[in-house]
Every structure is written in structure tokens, then in C-alpha cells.
Amino acid sequence: MAKTHISTSINGEPVEFLADPGSSLLDVLRNTLGLTGTKEGCGTGDCGACSVTVDGRLVCSCLVLAVEAEGHEIGTIEGMAQGETLHPLQRKFLEMAALQCGICTPGVLISARALLEKNPNPTETEVRFGLAGNLCRCTGYDKIVRAVLETAAEMRETV
């Protein structure tokens, strides 16, 4: 089937690509555009490893068709740090060892950022439910939740 030409914006930069009508956004990010920071854990919307934002809204990129990106703003893990400056969540995850193997980490960070944008002062329960779509098999979530809560507290202070 003929490919469709898509114009979109990824992490603030204009991007064009050709996509099969059936390709997922995840597939195009990873295999067409070489943005492999977004991970595939399941391909069925159940693990959150592929989390990205579309116009600021958190989605599983494995459940979005690539052609749906037309005219929208996509945010991926590659755009989370500003040059050498890590996002506070990224920094806190390193300081507090909130990752082990790290395969879930890009998705968890994108989810956590979306959560804190909506709710800058979440309770532990709100963090737990906010991240319930992101499977992590290594950490038992303890250090992830603590890192998100700490980051939120820090970000509130610096605003």
C-alpha cells in the first residue's frame, strides 16, 4: 500500500516522514526516525515503555497510528533534557537510583512529567495511580515513587 507523507513536529523540531497506513507511531519513531529512546515492551498498550506525548497528552505510541501524527507536536524522551541540562526528574532518578535495567525508564519519565504537569503536588497514592500504566519489573516501584515525589517537592520550591 502506498505510504503517506506526514509533517509533524518532534521535540520542537519539524520532521517529515513517509509511513505505511498501518504503522504505529512507535514503529516510525524507532525504525524510521532512529529515535530508539522510546521502547517497545508489548506493542499492545499494556506496559507504557513506549510512552510519548501528543500535544502534551500522554499516550502509548504503540497504540497511535503514525499517520495520526500529522500536524501534531510529539514529545519523546530524546527531548526531555535541554542540551546538557537534565530535566529535574531525570536528575532525581539518577540520584535516587530509581532505575535498574532502565528499559522502562524513558516511559516512566515521560509519564511522570505528564503527571507533574497536571498535578504538581501529588500524594503517594496519586503518583502510584499516575504511573500505574508503566510496568517496571526491576525496582518494585519504591524508588521510582520516591523520586517522583522528591522531584515534585523540589520543583515546587524552585517555581
Binding site: L35, T38, E40, I103, P106
Partner: peptide, 10 residues
């Protein structure tokens, strides 16, 4: 690992 640059198998 927090910036998505680490190269996993896939």
C-alpha cells in the same frame, strides 16, 4: 539511561 541513549538489544 534517563535520556534514551542507552542501546538495548532492539
Amino acid at each position: 539511561k534517563v535520556t534514551g541513549r542507552a542501546t538495548y538489544a532492539a
